[in-house]
Design a protein around this nucleic acid. Structure first.
Lengths: 243, 243
DNA sequence: GAAAGATAGTTGTATATACCAGAGGAAAAA
DNA sequence: TTTTTCCTCTGGTATATACAACTATCTTTC
């Protein structure tokens, strides 16, 4: 279960293990999980390491502690899914469509002023540029250009981006995607968009500029997307913050 | 500053101290705070204790870490407020512009199929229809049509809607606005939008359809807005919900 | 039988130490 | 001058240990 020689931190392995135990029902709601000392003993790791794993799960709301009694499984939080930050792939699946991509270009280039500013990098810092036509049910839906700091996502290959970039970032690089700021506007299709989206010149497109951040606030992704206005609507929910 | 004999845990004392330093401006946004080792040395406490204090502040969003560089002060939550549900008036004030309106029509009409569906009413139920040109710094920004169930917001007058509708609903009718669902798309300006927004035929516009709900889930407002694409961008933030 | 005390188990706080990995600048080499 | 190497700073991970504070149970005492 716990592999000390793995490059994945022990506390993270334990976190995943406990989470899986909760999800498969081996640990039930309001039931005490094994004590910190027991985990330490069982897997021959330090109690402080166990604490680090449990602390994270407490912060994420999976567990709660009671001094002198133990640590218990929390009720699953009912997430409001609609407003979540999702990739194109996740978005399309949610809408019941089959997502696919056509890769136009994939290269490392020096960041121009806009990209550098969005990713909080110095100008000309190397970044991946990935340009794709995004398809839904095999019909062009959007023209998307993604920029990633080259030093953050080393070893990116065509294969990976054909799978799920977000999955790679979260599961392999072990980075935690936290939040994103989006800017949405309407525009007339430019030459390149006319060509790849198979629309007429002057047709309206929905432009979405997104900057995504890791938990520590580091920007890790800047995406420019141009969606076909006749095929795509952006949907989200908002809460009223009482003044 | 740090009292080892206090019954208050050391890490908590340090937390409060760092927070006060942020609030009084001694530590500025995006500025590095002293390193963990420096705090440990300065107050003769263990680095792990310092880490515990800083961890908590990171989890609460006061600080963010960057491996190899240091720990930095985060933007205050006030700057992260943009995501809230706001009226046009509040939105423009937030952007530093002067909002105003030109009332085009104000009447009670039977709900058509779209409006009835959005407000969860039967067709032909009476609703207020308010059509306005929204101006920012005296320049047309959007054409907006609002629908309100007549039985929910009785006694609506032109005066009230020239003030703040949200204020009236919350302060006078004592209804609590909870959340809204929005649908954002791009389109080409229609005849009526061309006329009132002073744009050319075929210009792109940003369409925003919003349904707002009270705390008990009752829809109380349906708004159709067409914004000038060259003057308005919709901005918001999203959180990543871990799968 | 009821109250008081001991006991064992839990999490909470704190220290000292060690090594790893990323970032950045200084020194050395080309 | 430009490139490379190295050193030192940073936070990240992990261990071992100790005692405090709280909870629940068992045991003794009244």
């Amino acid at each position: 279960m716990i592999d000390k020689n793995s490059p994945i931190p022990i506390y993270h392995q334990l976190e995943e293990y406990i989470k899986s135990q909760i999800e498969c029902g081996a640990l039930k709601v309001d039931e005490a999980i094994p004590s910190e000392r027991e985990y330490a003993e069982r897997y021959q790791i330090s109690r402080m390491t166990v604490r680090q794993a449990i602390n994270n799960l407490v912060n994420e709301g999976y567990l709660y502690r009671q001094k002198g009694r133990g640590t218990f499984v929390n009720k699953q939080k009912v997430e409001q899914k609609l407003q979540g930050l999702t990739s194109f792939t996740e978005d399309m699946l949610e809408r019941g469509m089959k997502p696919s991509s056509k890769l136009l270009s994939f290269q490392i280039i020096p960041a121009d002023i806009q990209v550098a500013s969005r990713l909080k990098l110095k100008e000309n810092t190397p970044v991946y540029e990935i340009q794709r036509v995004r398809l839904a049910d095999d019909v062009p839906m959007a023209l998307e250009t993604t920029y990633l700091p080259a030093n953050l996502v080393k070893g990116l290959t065509e294969e990976i981006i054909n799978q799920s970039l977000y999955k790679y970032i979260e599961d392999t690089l072990l980075l935690t995607i936290s939040e994103a700021a989006q800017q949405i506007e309407a525009a007339s299709a430019k030459e390149i968009e006319v060509k790849h989206l198979e629309i007429e010149k002057g047709s309206p497109v929905l432009l979405i500029l997104r900057t995504s951040y890791l938990q520590d606030g580091t920007p890790f992704e800047f995406v420019k997307s141009a969606y076909r206005a006749d095929r795509y609507k952006f949907v989200h929910t908002m809460k009223r913050t009482s003044s």
